[in-house]
Design a protein around this nucleic acid. Sequence first.
DNA 1: GCCCCCAAGATTGCATGCATCTCGGCCTAA
DNA 2: TTAGGCCGAGATGCATGCAATCTTGGGGGC
Lengths: 247, 247
Amino acid sequence: MPPTSISPQQQRTATEESARPPAEEAVRAGDAVRPRAEEAVRAGETIYQAVRDRIISGELRPGARLSIPALAEEFSVSRSPVRDAVIRLVQEGLASENMNRGAVVARISGAELVSLYEAREALEWAAARLAAQRYTPALRRTLLGLLTAHRAAAEAGDLAQHLELDAAFHREIRLAAQSPVLAQMLDGVQGRVRLAMRSTSVQGGMLLAVDEHQAIFEAICAGDPDAAAEAALAHIRRLKEKLHAGR
Amino acid sequence: MPPTSISPQQQRTATEESARPPAEEAVRAGDAVRPRAEEAVRAGETIYQAVRDRIISGELRPGARLSIPALAEEFSVSRSPVRDAVIRLVQEGLASENMNRGAVVARISGAELVSLYEAREALEWAAARLAAQRYTPALRRTLLGLLTAHRAAAEAGDLAQHLELDAAFHREIRLAAQSPVLAQMLDGVQGRVRLAMRSTSVQGGMLLAVDEHQAIFEAICAGDPDAAAEAALAHIRRLKEKLHAGR
DNA sequence: GCCCCCAAGATTGCATGCATCTCGGCCTAA
DNA sequence: TTAGGCCGAGATGCATGCAATCTTGGGGGC
C-alpha cells in the first residue's frame, strides 16, 4: 500500500491521478443517503497523531527535521494540515522551530530534563494520592497483573518489556486518579521524557523500579493516600537523582 | 489608528493601498546593509498572544466564538495566521472546537476546575519547595514588597488589586523555582483557572490568602523546603475546597 | 397552528500561489 | 590555501481559492 494515506473525506481537486471513477459517485442503491463517514476525522489530526507517535517511539530522533513539504507528500495531502500538526507539536514541546527555518524534533537539554522530572515528581505524587482515594478492586486487579508481568520481565532482563510495563503502570495510576488535567500533563511530561531518553541513555535498576511500584501499589490498595503519594514521590525522585548522577 | 495592525514584515501583495513609496526602499546612506528588523515576529504569534490575552482578561467570555474570518479582518491579515493561533489556543485548552463548526472560548466545567486545582496543588507544592531551595535575598525583598502591598489591598477590600497581587506572588515563586516546565504548566493552569472564574464566581478570604502567603514566604525565607511546600499545599487546598463548597 | 424540509449564506478545512528567507556551493580576491 | 561574498535551490509564512459542511429562516405539508 502507499506509504500512508489520509481518508479523502473532502476536497478532491483531482489535479493528478485524475481519471476519477466515472459513475462510482452514486452510492450503491439501498444505502442511506449519506453513510455519514463514521467519525470524519481531520487530516491534520491524523498527521499530528502519526508524527507524534514517530517522535515518541524514537523513529524520529531529536534534531530531525520536520519538513512540511516532505510530510505533505508522504501523507498525500497539502501543506496546510501538516503545518497545523507541526504547530501543535511545537506547542506541546515535542518540536522546536526557528523563524523561517522550520521545525525539528526537540532536543531536550539536561537542565530541561531535570525540570521535567521536577514536574513529574509533583504530578505523580498527586496522581498516586488521588488513585488511593479513588481505589477500587478493579484497579487492584489491573495493577497486580501489571506488577507480576513487570517483575517477570525485570528478572528476565527484558528492557523493552520493562519500559513498556513501567509506562503502563504509571498510565493506570493516572487513569485511576480521574483527573483529566493531571493526566494530560503527565502524558505531556512522559512524552518529553521519552524523547530526552533518546539522547541521554540513563537506564537501569529495573528490579528496583518494580519494588518501588509495588510499594505504591500496596499503599494505594491500603487506601492510604499519604503513603501512596510518598511512595510515588520517592520513586520519581530516585529516577531524577539518577539523572544527576548519570550526567 | 486602525483597530490593530500586524507589522507587515513580509508579504505585500499590494492588492489594496498599493501606491507603495517609490524610492523609499533604499535606506538612508550610512546605515548598515540591513537593520535586520530587530525581532521579526510572526503574525500568527502576535494574534495568538492578543487573543490569549483577551480570553484570560475576560474580554472574551467562555462560549464566545473565535471566528476566523472576523479575527482576520480585525487584525488585517489573512485567515492563515489566525488559524494557526486558534489551533494553539485549542491545544492549550483555552478554546475548544467541534469539527466543521469552529472554535469557541472554552467553558471550564466544575469537574475540570476541580481537576485544575488538583494539578495546581501539586505544582505549587513543588514550586514552593524549589523556591525555598533556591532562596536568595533578592527573592525575599521582592516577596516582602508584594506581601506588604497585598495586605494593604486586602485590608482596603480592593478586589482587583488583591487578584493582581495574589497572581504576582505566585508568579514570583514559580520564577524563583527556576524550573521551566513547572513554570509553564503553572502558567497554563493559571490561565484556565482565571477563565473558569468567569463562570463560577467564587471569591473571598482575601486576608486569609495574605496570611497563607505570609506562611509560604516565611518558610521560603527560612530555607525550609518541606515547610514551604506544605504551606503552599495548604493554601491551594483551601482554595480547592472552597470550590467544592461554593458549587 | 405545528413540524419538517430545503435553500441561501456563512464558515470550515484543505489546496495552492507567491514573496521572502535561509543555507549550501561556487567564484573571486588576498 | 583560505576568507569572504554572490547566487540558486528549497523551504517558510502568509494570501487566497474552493468544495463540503453547518446554520438559519421561510415555505409547504399535515
